[in-house]
Amino acid sequence: MPAIVVEGLERAFDEVLAVQGVDLEVDEGEIYGFLGPNGAGKTTIVRMLTTLLLPTGGRATVAGHDVVREARAVRESIGVALQEAALDPLMTGRELIRLQATLQGIPSGEGRRRADDLLDRVDLAAAADRRVGTYSGGMQRRLDLAAALVHEPRVLFLDEPTTGLDPVSRKTIWEEVRALNDEGTTVFLTTQYLEEADQLADNVGIIDNGRIVAEGTPESLKAEVGNPHIQLQLEEGSIAEAEKICARIGKLLPPKDGKTMLVEVANGAADIPRVVRALDGAGVEVGALELVQPSLDDVFVAKTGYHLEQEDEEGAASEPVET
């Protein structure tokens, strides 16, 4: 039985359709990565699947229960760590997990035992009796994750679990998510980081403007895009000239900034000499050159026309460019 089934899910806010007819299925024991820029509708969908928001159309079941009609049963089967890492700065880590245990209807003795185990597991045992307000960002996310696990949920929802974290903290969360999954927990995770989806997810759904634009395993999605591309660093003034030349060899992809040019080529490394010779012949100087295998970003570009992650680290997507 699939852990999550979503059919034609819609959500409107006043006139705006934030989620427009989403269909997806997540199998038991799978990690599903939901990839998209800010404002694409990821959080809205998570809120609907976790019973925090009512759909305005379509239906969804989580752990076999309808999210609207059987909200209570859904809440019993899911663990939720939402984007804000909603934590009370005045509570200690231990108190928070015990409160979560109580909220899930776990008897207090059992709750105490699980709190100790979980704090140990996410490496917060030493900080367990400190107030959450004194925790670092990474510690807060780990605590939030531990709280979401207190009732051993069948399905775990993580809304952007590593946004804003440093690389080390991010890796720690990844390891924990993988370990949980190995124990059989289904994980539904949203992210705006390509690497995160690539590293963790068995299946990836790419969402843009409230619609799923592509779905599949990271490998199949990348294979679908097909060819690798050559990335060239050029002098700013010579781009136009270079584009003219390279358009004859491969397919131009939308550039990431004003100094790089991306050319999709059919024969991979074998096409590099052709490109170099042609540019050299026209007197265009190449600063650096790299052959790049297809990534989820290429999938994203192919489906939406723009890059998910910008070079300027904004995280948000840029304006669509013509392809």
């Binding site: 976790t50 019973t51 939720v80 804000e84 890492a85 909603a86 979560q100 909220l103």
Partner: peptide
């Protein structure tokens, strides 16, 4: 966002 924690519980 704290209320979400309570509301998402059974």
């Amino acid at each position: 966002g704290w209320l979400d924690r309570l509301l998402a519980s059974p």
